[in-house]
Amino acid sequence: MATPKFILELREKIGHDLLWLTGITGVVLNDHAEVLLVRRADTGRWALVEGILEPGEQPALGLAREIHEETAVEVAVERLVSVQAQPPFSYPNGDQVQFLDLCFRCRWVRGEPRVNDDESLEVAWFPLADLPPLNPRELTSIDNALSPDPMPLLPGVGG
């Protein structure tokens, strides 16, 4: 997977030290009660479409860009679903990273899903009632995107 140029430039200065990044996640839904998933090339597991914001990029526009780059699908970003700091982790090369993830509900507009870059092995629609194994954060993101409550989930705020 291609690491964004701005991250490579930062890594030249900070080495493997912890880098705080803004991640974006899309829960893309269609009119058939299906969610768009990608099978990641790095882990082989099915996942929501995710990416990293470029410096100065607006979150909704960055997510629409990432979804199109990875799946060839065009979306309308409907609403913010959650804002969460993810736990820090290390990549196999030793780079440490922590993401502030902004998750959005998106609606399919046009395009047939396909592998559109080197980040995915497969791209497919899955019925909400028959999802492949996903991690707990992704399942929570889907549940929150389906909620009629328009307020985003803000862990650590409120009761």
Rank of each mutant, 00 (worst) to 15 (best):
H32P: 00
E9Q: 15
G156A: 10
E138S: 13
H68D: 10
E112S: 14
I14F: 12
L139S: 02
E54A: 13
W108K: 07
G156F: 06
E9C: 08
G159H: 12
P113G: 12
P152H: 03
V35C: 03
P136G: 05
A47V: 00
P133V: 06
L10V: 14
Q98W: 04
L29T: 07
S120W: 09
G94S: 07
A129T: 14
S90D: 10
L153M: 06
R110P: 02
P113V: 13
W108G: 04
L21T: 13
F89G: 11
V73P: 02
L18H: 05
S147M: 09
P88A: 13
Q96T: 04
N116T: 04
L37W: 02
E119G: 08
Q58D: 11
T25H: 01
D130V: 00
D130Y: 06
L100S: 09
V27D: 03
P155Q: 11
V115D: 06
E34A: 03
P150I: 10
A85L: 15
Y91H: 14
W20H: 14
E12M: 14
I7G: 07
A129Y: 09
V123R: 08
P148D: 12
I52L: 14
L29I: 08
R45H: 11
L102R: 08
A124F: 02
E122D: 15
G15P: 08
V115G: 08
N93V: 07
A33Y: 07
Q96F: 01
R137S: 12
L21N: 10
I24L: 13
N144D: 09
